[in-house]
Design a binder for these strands. Structure first.
Ligand SMILES: Nc1ccn([C@H]2C[C@H](O)[C@@H](COP(=O)(O)OP(=O)(O)OP(=O)(O)O)O2)c(=O)n1
Ligand SMILES: [Mg+2]
Length: 749
DNA sequence: CTCGATCGATTTA
DNA sequence: TTAAATCGA
């Protein structure tokens, strides 16, 4: 039986290459891709090899890179909706995958820029074609191949590489078993594939060929960039003897650190030398077995046949002062994220004939992170935004300050997943594909799918502006397929304001769960019965880690279960304390600000009112078509503001004329009642509060406009397009994009 | 009630 | 930094 042959292809400094193809003038010079620019020149996420030679690294700040390497070109990641948008790189990654698919039927997309290929079959074909005779094979076809353990000899690097591959080729043909020959054929296939990738996409890459994923990945990294490396099985022991374990896939994190710290291991060889009982005692038999094999170069993990991501998501960090501290901010950013995800989901549905069933919200606060899942009723940004907000709102622990968000969100992300085939006619025979789908390389691949018909993708969109009832479900953009295990138990409007902050305290009872590292540890503590948390041999890593992190190491003599429970109650308690403090501080701050600014407000009536032109340009310059397209609600607001403006004859007007029902005048409590929130807003914050409403409304208005544009262009197949109408649409759209930027400025600072 | 859904943790790019 | 996958309970 021939051995499995795995190929790992990894693009070189991928995002930079993408930008170099887009703008070839930066080629050959130091360059890096940065995200954002305002804070210290942005964060670097990819660095080309010229810049690496100057010490520039990932995660470095743009400013620091410029200091380190003044000649460096920093290319910015596109920003859309106030966040980084990685679509360009995803699309380029797909280009590469598509080329690889021409050469091999079993491909696992491992990330945006790398893929594993099981080329066992392809190797076998090649072996049959080439007679097992070295004379039929020219090793010079392997002009970018290195061989681990066959470093060769000579003056230059290239000379050594060349003699190495030459000698290994001779050896492979002379060897009695064909394992090395298979790897050699793998190298040949890899050379061909990489050449095709370069010719077709313009991107360079590196590759590794070995008998499993772990070794292929490891090999790939040995001679980057633009080179490939093969790792014969016989070379493993000597190579592992000096290879740092932390560079091996799966050992680069906490687990690897334990091996280093507790077992004094530095290399894979050190790990391989550990006795089974030693490993079993610490990690349990399953993990011990896995690790022992792993450390000897054995890895059974199959290459799964999957070219599409299983989830589509996006997120954004809100660092330091950017933390989301109010409901409108959360709602707004949720909206931005939802828009991107829905846009990508919609394209995914057309391209891949599948529909995501669930949305997962993930949020980080100072107190930790949580995630919540909900069903996706339709690919409709408004609906999803509202549903998500309803779910998210349950985690907002603000009772005294109804418009605040506590604790502030440091990160908000969304992920859509649990894809099912799109049954709504459009997608042809895709259902049969999904039924047969599995992770097995022998299964049908997406490549075999018929192309989808994009002309059929517009039905249902015309309803985007009206609320869709369940009766309309088949006509509307609703999904009727499959079951919905998740339910959103309350809708946005109902849950928007109501929250007393008490339900949640009772709900904080989740068990600590384990990750890759923790689950590899044996729970001797459990088997041995009661353990005290002071016991240095205490085995539960989750608890240990949490204690270290939170300084909650205390108590003794209780059972393991008690530890978990006390852990949780401690956490809950500390949470409560923190929140009360937060709320109190915020309340104090708010009150002080209100009083202070009230004073100045009385002194100069309009000075610190928000200029409406910060949201909209002066009315005369608002595109009438934009005006028309806005919801009546917003038009009225704008007109009101403008009218007031004219009446006063001033250049400025109070946005706070919007939505005010009452002006409550008490000596120490000046506030407005916002009729949208039905909540009292401190005077000093009312302008900003209303800005949020306007921005949120505009977000919605722009969204429905965008939808109708999509609909319009899609419809032109069946309907004769009117020149005028189309032109107007385009202009209007451009205008909107410009105008939405003004709104963004409220949130993007 | 059971097993699918859910969620946190870990790892990687 | 912004993704995405996997595992166990
Ligand atoms: N922490 C990370 C790691 C990677 N990436 C992105 C940018 C990279 O260009 C791309 C691929 O990641 P790689 O680790 O493969 O790094 P590069 O392709 O940039 O360089 P190399 O030539 O070392 O593969 O993923 C990222 O955004 N954040
Ligand atoms: Mg790469």
């Amino acid at each position: 039986m021939n051995p499995k042959i795995v190929l790992l292809v990894d693009m070189d400094c991928f995002y930079v290459q993408v930008e170099e193809r887009f703008n070839p003038t930066i080629k050959g010079k130091p360059a890096a891709v940065v995200q954002y620019k305002n804070y210290k020149g942005g964060g670097i996420i990819a660095v080309n090899y010229e810049a690496r030679a100057h010490g520039v690294t990932r995660s470095m700040r743009g400013d620091d890179a410029k200091e380190q390497c003044p000649d460096i070109t920093l290319v910015r990641v596109p920003e859309e909706r106030g966040k980084a948008n990685l679509t360009k790189y995803r699309d380029c990654g797909k280009e590469v995958i598509d080329v690889l698919c021409r050469h091999c039927s079993c491909i696992e997309r491992a990330s945006i820029d790398e893929a594993y290929l099981d080329i066992t079959n392809e190797v076998h074909k090649r072996l049959e074609e080439i007679q097992l005779n070295e004379k039929d094979f020219n090793f010079e076809a392997l002009s970018s191949t290195y061989v681990v353990g066959w470093e060769g000899s000579g003056q230059t690097e290239e000379e050594k590489r060349n003699t190495g591959i030459r000698d290994f080729t001779r050896h492979a043909f002379e060897s009695t078993d064909n394992q090395d020959l298979c790897i050699l054929m793998g190298a040949l296939i890899a050379e061909e594939m990489r050449k095709d990738v370069l010719q077709t996409t313009g991107f360079k890459c590196s590759a590794g060929v070995a008998v499993n994923k772990m070794l292929a990945k490891l090999a790939c990294g040995l001679h980057k960039p633009n080179r490939q490396t093969i790792l014969p099985v016989a070379s493993i022991p000597e190579f592992f003897a000096s290879f740092p374990l932390k560079k091996v896939r799966n050992l680069g994190g906490k687990f690897g650190r334990v091996l280093m710290d507790e077992f004094n291991c530095k290399t894979m060889g050190d790990v391989a030398a550990l006795s089974f009982p030693t490993l079993e005692k610490r990690f349990g038999s399953e993990t011990a077995t896995w690790l022992q094999r792993y450390a000897n170069g054995i890895d059974d993990e199959d290459v799964s046949n999957r070219r599409l991501p299983k989830s589509i998501g996006c997120g954004k960090n809100f660092n330091g002062p950017e933390a989301l501290t109010t409901k409108p901010k959360v709602l707004y950013w949720l909206g931005q994220l939802v828009e991107e995800v829905v846009e990508r989901l919609t394209k995914d549905r057309q391209d891949n004939g599948r529909i995501a069933q669930t949305m997962t919200i993930h949020a980080y606060t100072d107190e930790g992170s949580f995630s919540r899942a909900l069903p996706i009723r339709a690919y409709d940004a408004d609906k999803i935004q509202k549903d998500c907000f309803s779910v998210l709102q349950k985690e907002n622990r603000t009772s005294s300050e109804p418009e605040l968000w506590i604790p502030p969100l440091k990160n908000l992300s969304l992920s859509a997943g649990k894809f099912q085939p799109d049954e709504s006619k459009k997608s042809g025979r895709i259902d049969s594909f999904f039924k047969r789908m599995s992770n097995n390389k022998n299964e049908v691949s997406l490549q075999a799918l018929p192309p989808n018909n994009p002309t059929l993708e517009t039905s249902g969109l015309e309803t985007e502006n009206s609320d869709i009832e369940f009766d309309d479900i088949d006509e509307a953009d609703e999904f009727t397929q499959g079951t919905c295990p998740l339910e959103v138990d309350s809708v946005f409007e109902k849950v928007d304001i109501s929250n007393d902050g008490k339900e949640r305290l009772e709900k904080v009872e989740s068990k600590p769960s384990k990750g890759f590292f923790a689950r590899k540890l044996e729970h001797k503590a459990l088997e041995e019965g009661p353990t005290t948390s002071n016991d240095p041999t205490f085995k539960d890593v989750n608890l240990q880690e949490k204690r270290l992190e939170e300084g909650l190491f205390s108590g003794s003599g209780s059972s393991f279960k008690d530890h978990i429970e006390s852990e949780n109650s401690e956490r809950t308690f500390s949470k409560k304390l923190k929140d009360n403090d937060n709320a109190l501080a915020l309340a104090k701050e708010t009150g002080a600000k209100a009083l202070y600014s009230l004073k100045s407000k009385i002194e100069s009536e309009v000075d610190d009112l928000v200029d409406i032109s910060e949201i909209f340009p002066p009315n005369s310059k608002i595109d009438p078509e934009l005006m028309e397209s806005l919801p009546v609600e917003i038009r009225v607001k704008l007109n009101n503001a403008e009218t007031l403006n004219k009446a006063k004859g001033a250049g400025k007007t109070a946005v706070s004329t919007i939505g005010i029902n009452k002006f409550i005048s008490k000596a120490d409590n000046f506030s407005f009642l916002c009729n949208k929130c039905n909540v009292n807003i401190p005077l000093v914050e009312f302008d900003e509060h209303n800005d949020f409403h306007i921005a949120l409304d505009l977000q919605k208005a722009l969204r429905s406009e965008t939808s109708s544009v999509i609909l319009g262009s899609a419809n032109k197949r069946s309907t004769e397009p009117k020149e005028k109408g189309r032109k107007r649409k385009t202009d209007q759209n451009t205008d909107k994009l410009i105008k939405s930027r003004r709104i963004d400025e409220f949130f993007h600072k």
